[in-house]
Structures are given as C-alpha cells and as structure tokens.
Design a protein around this nucleic acid. Structure first.
Lengths: 217, 217
DNA sequence: TGAAATAATAAGGTCAGCCATAATATTTTT
DNA sequence: AAAAATATTATGGCTGACCTTATTATTTCA
C-alpha cells in the first residue's frame, strides 16, 4: 500500500506476458490475448518500458525485466490463489474461475493476499494446474510440453491448462480435458488441422490453438 | 454479467448515499465522504440522474430512486459479505476490513456474491454491525440511534459502526468502541465539543462527527 | 432585509487507456 | 530481389472521472 499502484491494465499486460511463457513475446500475440489492437498494445509496451517493467526489441518482441517478472509473479499469485478459493470453497464452475479470479486479483492488497494464502493452506497449484508463485515471486516454471507437439499415438496426462478465455475453458471442461485427465492423441489432421483425441473413451476434436494451451506430461 | 456494468465510481456514490441513511443527502456531504470536490460530485449526480439512479432537487439534495436503492443494496450486500469473509476467515484486523472489502466489492460478479453468501452461511450482519441486504435488495434498516444524540449519563450498547474511513475505524478499534460493547456517556462538552465516554473502565474522548457514526441501543 | 454562506452551473483542462487511419520500417515468402 | 506480410510510429480522437476557477442562484442567519 505505498507503491504507485499498478493499474489494472498494467497488471493484465504483465500477466499475459507471464502466461505466454518464455519470452520474447510478439506484441501482436499480446494484443490478441488481451483483445486490443496491436497499436494499443504497442503504446502500452512503450509505457511499461518507461516504467522499467519490460524491454522491447523492435520487430523481435517484448521481454519482462526482472522487476516486471516479479510484478507479474505477484499478479499470478493473487490470481491463482483466488482461483483456488473460488473453486474449492465457493464451488464455482471450473471454466469460470479464471475470469472471476481475474477481477478479484486486481482488487487485492498484499495483506489480503497473504491472509488468503494462509487460509487456503498455501497451495502450490491452481485448479488449472498452474503453479502459484510464492510470496517473494519465486516460481518453478511449469514443466511438460504442449499437447500441440505431442506425437500421434501417444497417451499423456494433462498437467495444466493455460487458457484464459472462458469459452475456451468451457469447451475443455465439456470435453473433459482437465488437469489429471489421461488422453490419447489419435490423429493430427494435415495443414495444421485439428487433433483428434480420445478422452474418457470419447473422441474429441481440438484445434491447434487450443491444444497449445494444454500442457501434458 | 449482462447489464451495462456499473462503474466503480458509480458504485461508490450509491454506496455512500445508502450508508448516509435516510435521504435526501446534501451533495456536499457526499463529496466530503468520497473525497472529491463538490463540483465533481455535482457532475456525477447529473450523470446518475440521467441513468435514473438518483433524483436531484437543487438546493435540497439527492435521493436514491427505487432503481438506485436496489443497486445500492446490491453493492452493500457484496461489501458486507466480503467484510464477513475478511474478518471471520482471513482474520484481517477489524479496522481494515472495510477498505479491503470495498476493493473486492467492485470486482464481484453476482454469481460469486451468491456463492460467497452461501459459503458464509448467509450472514445477516457485517462485523461493523450493519445489516446485509438479501439477494433481492431487501433491507431491514438499522434501528437504534446515533451516539451523538445520546443523553449524558446513559449507558448504551454499540449496535453498529457506520464509519468507513480506516483511520476512524482504527481509532474506534483502539478505544474499544466495537459492536456489542457497552459504554456510558459521561459528559458532553459545550459548543459541540467532544463526548467523554466510559468504555471498559477507561475514559475515552470522542468527537461528535465520529459519534455520529456509532449506532447504539 | 441585506450579508454571508452554501449550492449549482459553466468553461476549460488533465490523464489513462483505448480507438482508427495512415505512413514507414522490417522481415518473410515467393 | 521484389512482393507480401507484419511491426512500428505518428497523428488525432474519444470517454469517464476527476480537477480549477469563475459566475450565478438560493438559502440561511444576523
């Protein structure tokens, strides 16, 4: 409660960058994920750059600075702790917790964050399977690889779902593609076409951009 | 998740009006409570008037319309449910829960509100002693009268504290003026000077503007 | 009733975070 | 290497919720 409070918008950009994993991130991808125009995302990256949160190498993408990485870890911590609360205690539908937790996240002071963590028993992962950074920004990156790159014929276990859009989460939920679920890749259509999976004895079609956000082991 | 989302600022104005009790409310008092200039509050009241949330009678004050009253009850419900959660489950210090709950309130969707209410066991009052409106906006107004108007010599019980500023709440907390506490009015200084109270065997001075927000029975 | 206090309105300004459009720069593909 | 695609920068606009500084209207009080 002293730092020049980070705006909601700033938090969303930092979070998106952290969620998109290893950098650098193309500004266009950020814009897409955040639902703004590339021009707006560019402007914002200039502002974040001035604040020392990101580094922008034109035509290459943006990278979180150490300061930015810490800030992002903080945001992710709040986000994911709320996800745990909403899912475990309020029994909110899995597909909706991301969106609801996102709103709450922006409104959460450090003192509340830590009290919440204690209340929840300091969980290490959120219901989507993503790790929860510790209070100091410590963060074991999520291992495993994307379902997108999984060879046809392999049987894998879903470790985490990195999607954030409610409709995408809803689709995955309906098809049973949730953390812990075992599934098999039956087919990969040519021309970057969808994967066909076997989940719980049912065949499920999954586009590559969705498969990208399913982390398996 | 469908209505043209009410801005945070709008919610603050509605909440302040509801908290200030029976109407009409002078715009200057609203401005004071919200920490904005009277001119800004005036502008805002024009906007809320256009949205049909308040009625403004120039030189008399503003009143919530039925629509405004319902919206305000909704805001108060969220606010006070979060207060219960923060106090009962997260063990946040009493004086701070209002402020923290206020941030969370703005970020809470109806579905989350109702799940939270169920989780908390549908409490009827918040830790400050104020009633929690039901899901339909139903609201039994807080009985009792202000400590300000309590006769010298009387012994009363604190039913609720209607203050919202953290420093004020902190002062009351430090002096033990909390819901359920019994206290006696020892003296009322002239010229609208402070009250002297006996609380827990200690003498406590309390200015009238603070006493105003202590509801007793 | 006239002065003082209070309330309302008007006019113009700021700021963050968006937008669109257009021009320019770079990279990728053919 | 030229064409196409993508990224960046420039310019100008918009909105909500504030602000300040007048000016005007009304109410309250001596």
């Amino acid at each position: 409660m002293s730092l020049p409070h980070m705006s909601e918008s700033t938090e969303m950009y930092l979070k998106a960058m952290a969620e998109l994993g290893d950098h650098p991130v193309a500004i266009a991808r950020l814009a897409e994920r955040l639902g703004v125009t590339p021009v707006s995302a560019n402007e914002m990256m200039r502002r974040l750059g001035e604040q020392g949160l990101v580094t922008h190498t034109p035509y290459k993408g943006v990278t979180l600075t150490e300061k930015g990485r810490e800030a992002a870890a903080n945001v992710l911590r709040r986000q994911r702790l709320w996800e745990v609360f909403l899912f475990e205690h309020l029994k909110i539908e899995w597909a909706k917790i991301y969106e609801f937790a996102c709103s709450l996240e922006h409104a959460t002071a450090p003192e509340v964050t830590e009290a919440l963590a204690a209340f929840l028993g300091n969980p290490k992962v959120c219901p989507r399977g993503n790790p929860i950074p510790d209070a100091n920004g410590g963060f074991e990156p999520l291992g495993g690889r994307s379902l997108r790159e999984t060879a046809v014929g392999k049987t894998v276990r879903v470790r985490a779902v990195n999607a954030t859009a409610t409709d995408v989460l809803k689709y995955l939920q309906d098809k049973g593609i949730l953390p812990g679920q075992t599934l098999k890749v039956l087919e990969a259509a040519p021309l970057d076409g969808p994967l066909t999976l076997s989940v719980n004895g049912k065949e499920v079609a999954l586009g590559l951009s969705m498969a990208e956000f399913v982390i398996v082991e």
